[in-house]
Design a protein around this nucleic acid. Sequence first.
DNA 1: CTGAAAGCGCTTACAG
DNA 2: CTGAAAGCGCTTACAG
Lengths: 334, 334
Amino acid sequence: MIARIKDVAQLAGVSTATVSHVINSTRYVSDEVKKKVYDAMKQLNYSPNPVARSLRSRKSNIIGLIVPIKGNDNSNNFFMSVANGIESVLKKHHYHLILSNSREKYEEELERIQMFNNQWIDGLILAPTTQSEEHKDMERTFGDYPVVFIDRKPKHLQGDCVLINGFDGSYQAVKALLAKGHTRIGFISGGLHVSSVEERLMGYRKALQEKGIEPDASLIKSGESLWTSGYDLTHELITNENVTALFVANNVMCMGTMKYLREKRIQIPDRMALVCYDDYEWTGVIDPPLSVVRQPAYQLGEKAAEILLHRIENRNGKIKEYRLPAELIVRDSY
Amino acid sequence: MIARIKDVAQLAGVSTATVSHVINSTRYVSDEVKKKVYDAMKQLNYSPNPVARSLRSRKSNIIGLIVPIKGNDNSNNFFMSVANGIESVLKKHHYHLILSNSREKYEEELERIQMFNNQWIDGLILAPTTQSEEHKDMERTFGDYPVVFIDRKPKHLQGDCVLINGFDGSYQAVKALLAKGHTRIGFISGGLHVSSVEERLMGYRKALQEKGIEPDASLIKSGESLWTSGYDLTHELITNENVTALFVANNVMCMGTMKYLREKRIQIPDRMALVCYDDYEWTGVIDPPLSVVRQPAYQLGEKAAEILLHRIENRNGKIKEYRLPAELIVRDSY
DNA sequence: CTGAAAGCGCTTACAG
DNA sequence: CTGAAAGCGCTTACAG
C-alpha cells in the first residue's frame, strides 16, 4: 500500500499540516517534531503524490516543449540536443519535460498548445513553426503560463527569447571566403522569412558589403529544408551563376550540395569553396572535412530552461532576448 | 476566469455527475440533456482539468520515456527518431510524453524511474542502460505501471519488448561482403554485452559459418561508442589483422572508421570494403556512398507506444517480444 | 509553535 | 434515467 500524508501524520503523532510544512519548509517546525516526521516518512517510504499537490497548489512542475521536426527527418539533431539541454537543467530543479512536435505545421502547433493549456504546465518552451512567426493572434492562444521562444523569434509576439547569433556566424564564414579571394559566393538556405535564416543572410550581406561588393540577388537561393532542394539550388548556382564558393546555411541542404559536387566531380576546395551550417560529426570525417558554423544547441536548451524557470518565479521581470554565439570551425573546405 | 464542471452543471441546469458522464460517455444521458450540457460547455469554453481528473481517476494519460544518450552526443539521432515515433501515436490517443535521459548511467536511470514512480505515469518506455541489463533487482524499482523495453532486451527482467532484428540485418550485410569474395572481415561495435550488439555479432558469425569460415576472435573488436574508438579499432584491424572488409555495427564508430580510411588514403571499396550501421542521410552523400544497415527507429517508437497503450488497457495479457526488420541498403562501399 | 478543516476540480459508488 | 455527496491526497488560510 502506498502511504499518504495522513498515514505519516498519524504515525508521527502530528497533523497533516505539520507534515506538509516539514516537507515543503514552509513554516517553522521544531527540530524535535521534524525528526518524528522524517522518521515516519522513512518508515512508510512516503513520497508526496504530485498530482494531489498540483491540484491544490496549481503548480505541476512540468514544462512543455514544442519542436518543429518534419515528418521522418532523422537528420535534424539540432532540436534533439536542445531538448537534452533543457532536460538537464529541469532535472536539477525537479521539473519534468513534456515533449511535443508540431511537425513544422501551424495547425498542429496550435493544437499542441491547446493541449498544454489544459494540462496545467508551468511554462512552455516553443520553437515556433515558420508560419507562426506571422501570426499575431497566437498570443491569445497561450494559457496563463510564461513562454520562452527559442531559435526563431516570432515577429509579432513578445516574450523571452533565446536565439543563436546567426548573423555573426555567417558574417565570419563569408568573411573567410572573401579573404580567400572569392567574390561570387552563393548563399543557400531554407525559407528567408524565418528569423534565424534572415539573420544568416544579413551576415552574408554585411560581409560582402564591407568588401565593397554589392550582394547579387541571383546568388541568394532559398528552398525547402531538404537535401534534394540543396542539390537543386547548388546546380542552379553552379551552372547559371558561375559561383566559386558556396555558403550553405542549412545542414540538411548541405548534404544535397555535397552530393551534387561529388556527382559532378567538382573538387572541394579547389573548384568550389564551401562553408556549411552545423557541426555534426559527419562533417568532420568526410573528404575533405567541412568548414562549418557551429551552433550551441545544447547550451541553447540549457539557457532556455534557466530563463523559463526564472520567469516562473518572477513573472513581471523585464523581457529579455538572449543570443548565444555561433562559431566558425575551420577545416579544409575553403 | 476558467470554468469548472460546477459552472457547466449550473448553466445547463444539471448535476456535475451528469456533466461528467456526458464528457466521458460513461452512462446513458438523454439527447436532450446532452445537448444542454454541450451548449453550456461551449458557452463557457470549458475543458476538464486533467490534474483533478488524474487525482480522482488515478490515470494521468502521461507516458514516461527514458533514453540513454551520452553527454553531448548529438550524433545519436536513433532515440530522437524513436521519441518522435512514440509521440506520434500517443498524440492520437491523447496521451503525453515525458522525456528523460539516463545518459547511459545506471544510477541516473534508477533516479529517473523513481521520479516517475511518484509522478503517477500510466506507463513507461525504457531503453535500458547497458548496465541495467545485468541488474536483476531493477524490477522491484518500477512502480505499479506497465513497462515496455525498447532496443535492448534486459537479460533478467521480463516484460514487453520491442527490438530490431539486428541478427538478420548483420547476417545480410556480412553475407553480401562474403559474396564479393572477402574472407577476412573485421567486426567493430560497442560493448558486446548489450543485447542489440550481441545479436549483430551473432549475425556476423552465422554468415561466416555458413560459408565454412570459422569466426576469428581477433577480427572481432568492441569498444566505446565514440568515433575515436572506431578510429583506433579500424587501425588495429588493418595493421595487425590484414582485413579486406569491415562491418561496423555502430554509427558513431563508423565515422571513426571513415576518418581513418580517409587519412590513410585507403580506397573504398577497392582496398577496403565497408558496411556500416544506420542509414543517416550523410552516409548517402559522402564519397563513396556507404552501404548500411537501416534500423526502423521511428517505427520502433510507434510500435512501443502501441504496445504500451494496449498493455495499459489489458494488464494481464501474454508478454510479447516484437522484432522489427533491419534492412541492408546497398550503395557503393563494397 | 501547531492543528482542525476547507477546498483544489474532478469521478463514482450509492440511492431513488 | 439522474442527483447528492463522498473522496482522491494534498496545501493553506484561519484560529488559538
